[in-house]
Design a protein around this nucleic acid. Structure first.
Lengths: 90, 90
DNA sequence: ACTATATTTCGCTAATTGCCTAAATAACAA
DNA sequence: TTGTTATTTAGGCAATTAGCGAAATATAGT
């Protein structure tokens, strides 16, 4: 879970997740939304992948990134354990 | 909001928040829960404070840290905007 | 085999982080 | 004022991060 929070710490990576929330996209498509160099972006992809926040699937020469919803939800649950508070004590 | 996510990226800082969720505590009290040096911990406090996740109040020689619930909830909302998707769509 | 496209890996640098010990500051009591 | 306790600031160091351009890899088409 630590890797997940570390992955979320960078604005570009959060934006990537936000884009993938709408639909799966190739690395190139994602790159069009940013002005940073592709190798840099590729590094961000690998952080997200390492945290299991995204999965990949090769399709010819392109690689499709998609959000890993289950891990996102686990992360959300972990966050709520911090911020949540709402009741559930003792 | 970026500062908040950066603050959440370190396990010690998340643990601090978790402790403060139960009740406000002084720096020294918090320190008892960790094995790291106090100056290091003080650095973590300042990251949390800078992100507005905690507030401080001096009480004699001690400084009381308390969770800033409203910012925690904003952060939770921001997180849900990323992970949210709570089933309900399509 | 060669070319083109998509993406990643490599090698580098600058900036930041996290940790420490030692020193400084703040508040209080004697 | 001196001493004591609580906490932070300063200074330094090793490790990590984020960025880049150039080179490497993978796949497909000709």
């Amino acid at each position: 879970m630590n890797k997940v929070f570390e992955a979320l710490a960078h604005p570009v990576r959060r934006e990537i997740l936000k884009l993938l929330r709408k639909r799966a996209m190739s690395a190139g498509e994602l790159a069009q939304h940013f002005t940073i160099a592709k190798p840099t972006l590729s590094g961000h992809f690998s952080v997200l992948k390492n945290a299991d926040l995204v999965t990949t699937e090769r399709n010819g020469t392109t690689i499709i990134y998609r959000l890993n919803m289950s891990v996102m939800e686990e992360a959300l649950a972990a966050f709520m354990a911090l911020a949540g508070a709402k009741g559930k004590e003792r």
